[in-house]
Design a protein around this nucleic acid. Sequence first.
DNA 1: TGTACATCAGTGAACGCGCGTTCACTGATGTAC
DNA 2: TGTACATCAGTGAACGCGCGTTCACTGATGTAC
Lengths: 200, 200
Amino acid sequence: MRVSKSQAGTNRKALVAAAGKLFRARGMDGVGVAEVAKEAGLTHGALYAHFSSKEVLAAEALSAGLERSHQAMIRSCGEAAPNFTGYLDYLLSPRMRDTVEMGCPMTASASEIGRQSAEISSRFAAGLERMIATIQATLSDGHLDAEARRIAITVVAAEIGAIAIARAVAKSDHKLSDDILSAVRVELGRLESRRTKRAD
Amino acid sequence: MRVSKSQAGTNRKALVAAAGKLFRARGMDGVGVAEVAKEAGLTHGALYAHFSSKEVLAAEALSAGLERSHQAMIRSCGEAAPNFTGYLDYLLSPRMRDTVEMGCPMTASASEIGRQSAEISSRFAAGLERMIATIQATLSDGHLDAEARRIAITVVAAEIGAIAIARAVAKSDHKLSDDILSAVRVELGRLESRRTKRAD
DNA sequence: TGTACATCAGTGAACGCGCGTTCACTGATGTAC
DNA sequence: TGTACATCAGTGAACGCGCGTTCACTGATGTAC
């Protein structure tokens, strides 16, 4: 039956949120549209009143997840001014590793995006550029822009790889999983301290 | 019809190789057993004479792929003694990014392994430990073991992340994709040079 | 070495199942008068 | 404000299809005599 405009909007958002959560946790190929709709409290048919296909829904869920996790990252620095080491602590925490479905779509889906459409690749690239810019902004004082960008790219790449492999081995070797997080945390931290010293 | 023992062995290897290649390229959920068998020149029924399930085949394909890519990495240093920068050049090359199906299973499947069984997680962890040890060995002169291991872990994590995101954006932003490879190459290189200086 | 027969790798039809998508229908919402 | 009706979000049955797995069967291989 028909539903009010605001209810329809709420339902649409619920579909996007459910798709994001489930796709992050089990992959786009690992979850059917029926389960996404059920998670949002609807039936699968309703999904097609909002999205023309599963892939279109996935693209929207990716963008929404990138936005959400960007806000969470900004917020993680709390009232304090954003700073490099604060972001590292946040990005390489056990909490980030252990909350797949809540976390960043880039860490959850990194190796799957390359198989998707150009549209999805493009949305992923936008999220990546924003994260690089956010990290780079914490480094800009006393650093050449090109250097700061290089460090920011390395931080993002290392974080995505570290979380992915820390999750991959968590089931069989929890110590290795923890070692990965702390080792990458320490070494990335040194990328900045070296820079800062030279700039002094 | 029955086939000679050596032919059966050849067919088994062909199944493992086909599974590895296709799973790396399109994910374990993205390829059916019928296609794997066809790629190996067999029918799907034959697959079950060698493996009790698709997952068992996937586990074996993962181990075989890890072995193959480890050998390729060792070989990449050619006749010269293995060295840190040689490995970096190899691991962060456009060639590594562009040959998904031939490349390393860890870069191709990083974000999917966490959803698989403990058996697969364990095989992944073994491959990871071996790669860490290989990189660490190039750093051991004049470095504390714990430091060398930390750097090696960071190199492996950053490489896996860098290749994954370089592939993810390749379809929509080729310049960003190249930037990722070269930025991570430069910054990881500096992890060693800093160490070497301090050790002098 | 030659013959009889058990073995078993490989074939292809069949299984139940869940997939993404479509569509006729429902009935509350929103609108025109 | 009250009534008549068009709209359309949501339902659930149905679609064709490919999935992983099973199994009766085939016939060359390997073995026992």
